[in-house]
Nucleic acid binder design. Structure first.
Length: 214
DNA sequence: GGATCGATCGGCT
DNA sequence: GCCGATCGATCCG
């Protein structure tokens, strides 16, 4: 039986957690059925000094989950249209989270297709808004404890990817050209057809993978 | 495959 | 008022 990833996993430096989440399986339980996908792309948002983070202006009602304990979900609405899922990391009080950007579909694909309007399989969960729609994740999941045995959303260990299979790049969709904001805090499975972004961007902007943050 | 543009809401300045 | 950690439709090559 697969087991939920425990809170101790999330209660660690965010870049390490982000790297190790690649290959893990995100599971949503819906009416007794498992809907899931393998995480193939993530982005790290670390601390109040991260100019791209929602936590940059300090704690607010919206970003409260980022300041809360690790192992919880931070879910928000973007552009008035799409939902994004983050997994909160590091000790309570320190605002950090990992944006889940793409999944390789694994279980309950038919239900996911229904929620997605029968788009091509490749686009089922390729992008942060798309994967939320595929798994039926809305803002009612904000603050949910992924490590509680009673929640209907969690993460399991699944595949392991060697370092050579992993690539890094600047985060997608963040504005500004300061070096700090361009930190290569996006991790993805190189050459996976399931990651978002264009092939040329994914190949052309690859950085060495960082292991420590400022 | 790539560029552009509109949608549409909540949260902050 | 302004502006997003985006997506899909549409147009072009």
């Amino acid at each position: 039986m697969p087991v939920r990833i425990p809170r101790t996993f999330f209660d660690r430096p965010t870049l390490r957690v982000a790297r190790e989440l690649l290959g893990a399986r995100l599971v949503r339980l819906h009416e007794g059925q498992r809907l899931s996908g393998r995480i193939v792309e993530v982005e790290a948002y670390i601390g109040q000094d991260d100019r791209a983070s929602h936590a940059r202006m300090g704690p607010t009602l919206r970003n409260a989950a980022m300041f809360g304990p690790p192992g919880h979900a931070y879910v928000y609405l973007i552009y008035g249209v799409h939902t994004c899922l983050n997994l909160v990391t590091e000790e309570e009080g320190f605002p950090a989270a990992i944006l889940v950007r793409a999944l390789e579909p694994v279980e309950g694909i038919e239900q996911q297709q229904r929620w997605r309007g029968n788009v091509p399989l490749r686009n089922l969960a390729r992008g942060p808004g798309r994967l939320c729609r595929a798994l039926g994740i809305d803002r009612s999941f904000n603050g949910v404890d992924l490590c509680s045995e009673t929640s209907t959303l969690w993460v399991e260990f699944d595949r392991h990817y060697a370092d050579e299979a992993i690539a890094c790049s600047p985060r997608i969709g963040v504005r500004g050209d300061e070096t700090a904001i361009r930190a290569p805090w996006r991790f993805f499975v190189a050459d996976s057809p399931w990651v978002s972004g264009s092939a040329t961007f994914n190949r052309g902007s690859v950085h060495p993978c960082p292991t420590t943050s400022p």
